[in-house]
Simulated assay, not measured.
Amino acid sequence: MALLDTALLIFLLAISGAILLALCIIDLRRYQLPDTLNAAFGGLGLAFHLLSPYGFLPPASLGIAALLSAGLFLGLRWLFWKYRHVEALGLGDVKFIAAASFWVGLNGIFWVIALGALSTICAAPLYRLRGRPPSKRSTVSLRVPFGPGLTVATAGVFTHMIARSI
């Protein structure tokens, strides 16, 4: 039975890795994080914690983490729009951070946000060099997708969680 459990968890991790890669590529190309992929990623995170014999994080705390992190991002989105009239965070970013919470929990999600923001800031000059034109609906001169930074940070934080528990 343990072998079957391990194989299932490895399968969940492989599918989730593929979804993270797809989210990263789509956001780089289209500035979108599709709802279906966000939902699948979050669902797989919940399934991982429910099926894992290691008991990483309790499901109730994952739901609380998703609500709090999505609320934080919605609040930031609203503040930027109210005071700067800029859509600084898309709804896909809000949904992704909720989905990522189902993988890393409340403590991990703040690391995902911090590391995701740092990696996105570090990548911003590459977008300037690449010559990506600003959006016609944006008042800022450079748009940088947040999804790639968040996906890489999520994978890194979750990997760190696994490594610490072994």
Rank of each mutant, 00 (worst) to 15 (best):
F73M: 10
A14D: 07
G116L: 01
I109Q: 01
R143P: 00
L4K: 07
A40T: 12
R77M: 10
R130L: 13
P34E: 14
S101I: 03
A22K: 04
I10H: 09
R84Q: 11
G116Y: 06
F41R: 00
P58I: 02
Q32H: 08
I162A: 01
D27W: 10
L51Q: 11
S141E: 14
K82M: 04
W103P: 08
G131Y: 08
S135K: 14
W81Q: 10
W78Y: 15
L9F: 03
H160F: 13
R128Y: 11
A114N: 00
T159A: 15
A123N: 08
A100G: 09
L57C: 06
P133G: 00
H49A: 08
L4W: 04
L9H: 12
L46E: 11
G75E: 12
S165Y: 11
F41I: 00
S138K: 00
D27Y: 11
G75W: 01
W78M: 05
S138D: 14
G90E: 11
F146Q: 05
M1E: 07
G63L: 13
A100Q: 04
W81R: 07
A99N: 09
I26Y: 12
S119N: 08
P145W: 09
G156V: 09
P134S: 15
A114S: 01
A60N: 05
I19C: 05
D5Q: 15
A163T: 06
L106W: 04
F80T: 06
A47M: 14
L74V: 02
L37A: 08
G147Y: 09
G55D: 02
T120H: 05
F48H: 07
T139K: 13
A99P: 08
Y83P: 06
R137V: 12
G156C: 14
L9Y: 13
V140I: 15
L79D: 03
A114D: 01
S101G: 06
P148S: 05
L3V: 11
L68M: 11
Q32W: 10
P148G: 11
L23W: 09
L46M: 11
S69R: 01
L74M: 13
F56E: 04
G71A: 01
C24Y: 08
A117G: 10
S52A: 05
L33P: 05
